[in-house]
């Protein structure tokens, strides 16, 4: 097993809202290996962006983060002060955001914004720094780079801005990059270019990548491993092949059935969807997070050939039999019973 660049154990995020505490993220654990891409998939509001901000320690002030263990490479960053974290951010781990149009400061040149990262973390200034910036811009496909240095963000297209963001993040050669829907705001052709670029760069730099998206097409394209998030929990986790070939949680199956397949959809037939709504997670939520969201097909899966092996010390969490990396977690017994009959479940 290769080394982990990130290890997070039991991360929870609570946000005070009118009516109580909103448990937006509910004890999730995740890890990223060196050179690996972990895709976190889920619908809007499932907590995937909050998770990424929590790792960067950039959560909104009122949000409360609880976490048992958090290590970046060899560093235990769990109890890092704000000052220590600011030494890590942009240096050991970087983040790329969803909106390239607004993620760069409109008042400063590309050069200025890139140089300040270098001078902050590497104390490199002057001609040497400039050469590094140009080199990095060329690596992300901005050629010729010199022309862009003196330009301001509003003079660049969305795709170019996202490339600048990527170059900026890579400047200090971080161990981990978190990309929060970096291609959602771009049109499809640019999206493909950026995805390809990120894949290549990840290989070149051997960096761990957390890629957050709700687009399963993107997941299939870029992921090594996938974590499916639903209502603040990771419900299924596995290699990209396991998730797509053998979806084991009803929510994952629901998501996959929502993808329209050209040739298979018939005219006049409604597109696939997951019925119902995500429950409100305010207060002491203890019910089933998936209630009311079952589709007619789910019951049939009871007869599928997937067998689950219980995991010690974790309630309603299972390993898919025959795999070391494929996990499913159910929010409650009810969900589990509905999806799998007792013959399919084995004790550890």
């Amino acid at each position: 097993m290769s080394e982990n660049v990130l290890d997070v154990k039991n991360l929870s995020i609570e946000i005070p809202v009118a009516g109580g505490m909103l448990r937006a993220v509910d004890s999730i654990s995740l890890h990223v290996e060196k050179g690996e891409t972990l895709c976190i998939v889920g619908e809007s509001g499932c907590g995937k962006s909050l998770t990424s901000l929590a790792i960067m320690d950039l959560l909104p002030k009122k949000a409360i983060r609880k976490v048992e263990e958090m290590t970046l490479g060899e560093m235990n960053i769990l109890n890092f002060s704000e000052k220590q974290m600011s030494d890590v951010r942009g240096n050991k781990m970087g983040m790329i955001f969803q909106e390239p149009m607004s993620s760069l400061n409109p008042s400063f040149t590309v050069e200025n914004q890139m140089l300040e990262t270098l001078s902050r973390h590497r104390a490199i200034v002057g001609a040497e720094a400039k050469a590094l910036v140009i080199q990095m811009l060329e690596k992300v496909g901005i050629i010729p780079a010199v022309k862009r240095l003196r330009q301001y963000p509003h003079q660049l297209s969305g795709g170019l801005r996202q490339r600048v963001m990527i170059a900026m993040t890579l400047l200090c050669e971080p161990q981990l990059i978190i990309a929060d829907e970096p291609t959602t705001a771009l049109d499809v052709t640019i999206q493909a270019q950026i995805l390809k670029l990120m894949k290549n760069l990840q290989n070149d730099f051997d960096v761990g990548l957390i890629f957050i998206t709700h687009d399963l097409g993107v997941v299939a394209n870029i992921a090594d491993r996938v974590a499916v998030m639903y209502a603040g929990q990771i419900v299924e986790e596995g290699s990209v092949f396991e998730i797509f070939d053998n979806p084991s949680h009803p929510y994952t199956r629901g998501l996959l059935s929502c993808i329209p397949v050209p040739g298979k959809i018939k005219r006049g037939e409604p597109l696939g969807s997951i019925p119902g709504m995500v429950p409100s997670l305010v207060g002491d939520f203890s019910g089933c997070r998936f209630s009311g969201r079952w589709s007619g097909d789910d019951e049939q899966k009871k007869n599928s050939n997937i067998n689950l092996v219980a995991i010690d010390n974790e309630e309603n969490a299972f390993k898919v039999q025959g795999s070391e990396s494929h996990f499913v977690r159910f929010c409650c017994n009810e969900c589990l019973e509905k999806s799998y009959n007792s013959k399919q479940r084995k004790a550890s």
Binding site: M85, G94, F97, T117
Partner: peptide, 22 residues
């Protein structure tokens, strides 16, 4: 509350730089 201030913080810039420059 803008995105570019979040970017500045994600770059690890010190609070005075974020506040007064950005």
């Amino acid at each position: 509350s803008t995105d570019y201030i979040r970017t500045a913080r994600a770059k690890g810039l010190r609070p005075p730089v974020v506040l007064f420059k950005h």
